[in-house]
Amino acid sequence: MIDYLRIHVLWADGSVESQRIAEMISTHFDGLGMERDGVAYRIPVRFSSAPWAAGSTLPKPVDLTRAAHNAVVVLNDDFMFEQAAAWNDYLAETRAAITARGEVDIYIPFGSPGREAVPASDAARNTQYVRRDRWTQLTTPAARDKRLLLHVLVQIRRYLRTLKVDQRDEPLFVSHAKADGDTTARAIITYVQSPDNDVPLETFYDAMELNPGEDFQARFKEEIGRGTLIAIVSDVYDSRPWCVFELTTAKRHRRPIVLADINSVRISRTFPYGANLPRVRLSPAPGDDAWIDPLLAEAMSEGLRCDIFEAQARKALAGADALVLPRPPELFDIVDGDPPPNTILYPDPPLGDIEAELVQRAVAAIAPSARLLTLSEYSA
C-alpha cells in the first residue's frame, strides 16, 4: 500500500539527542489533530540512522517509493559533523533521488545547535537550514521540541499548498472577544511577529490590519476562508456576534479550527457550532509565553490533518461531485447553503448512533438521495 505522506527523520548514529527528537516526532505524528473514539490520523515516520552495512557509518538509503509524498527531515548536529564526508555523500544522493521524482517530496534540514557547518553538498546548493542555534530563548527540551515540530508542520503544509491552485501563504486568524480575550490573542500575535522568535507563520489579528476604506467584513471572509482559525474561547466569546460570524465563516469554508479555552468563571451560553472541534485548555500567566508554541503546533497539526484528508478525498472522488467535510458532519453542514450533493464525505471513523440519527434526519429532509459516507466506506 502506498501512503499519501511519509516522514523520514535522518540523523547520525550515536546522537542520543537526535534520537530523542526523532522519537518525539514519531509520537506526535502517530496521532495527528482531532481524535474521535480513540482514533486519530496517523502519518508514518521512518528513521534513518543505524549503519546498514558492515564497515559503514551510514543508514540504508531512504525509500521514497512507498509514499506519494515524502518529507525528509535532517537533524544536523556535532555527530553528523564528525562524519561529514560520509553524510555529505548520503544527503547528496538523497537530494538526487528527491529531484528525480519531480516536485513531489520536500527536504526539511535543521542546523546544528552547536553551529557546526552544514554538509558541503547542501552548502553548495545554498540550502536554507532551520537555525536551531538561534533558539537561545528556548531553555527546555520541551520548548525546543515544540518549535521544531512547528517548523516541520508548517513546511509540510506549505509544500502541500504548492500542489493546489491557490499557493498563497495561509494566515493564522486569531478570533477573540475584545472584552476578555484580547490579551491572550495579542500575546499570540506579538509572539509570532517578533523577530526574536523563529515562528514561520503569517497572522491576521483584527480590523487594525485593514487599510482605511476597506470592507472589513469582506476582508475577514477572505482571510478566514483561506486560513487556519484559533478561537480564543473566553467567558463572553460565544455571546459576541462577530465571534459567531468568524467561527461560522471558518466552518462554512471547511477551514481548520482549534478552540483555545481560557474560560475563567462561567459561559452564559455555549454557541452550538463551536462544538465538534478540538479544544485546548489554556491558563496563560502574565509574562509567560511557553504555552504559545504548543498551541500553534496543535493548530498546524489539525490543519495538516484537514489538508491531507481533503487531498485524499479529492483523489478518491476523481472529479465526482461531493460535499467534502474535514470533520464529522453536523447539522450546520447539512442545512447551511445549498442542498448537499448526492455524496457527503467525512473522515473515519463513522458517526456514532446518536449523532448519525440526527444528521441522517436532516439529510433526509433536505437531500433525500444523499449518502453519508466515510472515506474508507466510499473507497470500498
Rank of each mutant, 00 (worst) to 15 (best):
S175I: 09
P141K: 05
E17D: 14
D348S: 05
R131K: 12
S112I: 04
P59I: 00
V45R: 02
M300V: 09
A50M: 09
F245K: 02
R252W: 12
R255S: 04
R314N: 08
P294R: 01
V62F: 00
T162E: 15
F309A: 03
R314S: 05
V152Q: 07
H253Q: 12
P326L: 07
R147V: 14
I308W: 04
M300E: 09
A316Q: 13
I366K: 13
R219I: 13
F220D: 04
R42I: 05
P195Q: 05
T136D: 11
G181D: 03
L323G: 01
T27Y: 09
S239C: 08
A356I: 01
A123S: 14
K164Q: 15
A124W: 03
A124S: 03
L153R: 10
E298Q: 15
Y205P: 10
I98N: 01
E116S: 14
D196F: 08
V199M: 03
E170R: 10
T190N: 08
P113N: 07
A40C: 04
L163V: 06
E202H: 12
N276L: 03
K146C: 11
D182L: 15
I189V: 13
Y107D: 04
V104I: 14
P341I: 08
R305G: 05
V72S: 00
A84P: 00
A365R: 05
Y107A: 01
A84Y: 05
G111A: 10
E82F: 07
E116V: 12
D30G: 15
K315S: 12
P341S: 08
P141A: 08
E116W: 13
D196K: 09
E170F: 03
G303M: 00
L153G: 08
G274L: 03
D133G: 06
R186L: 14
R252D: 14
E35P: 01
P200Y: 04
A275W: 11
G181T: 01
I224R: 04
T228Y: 02
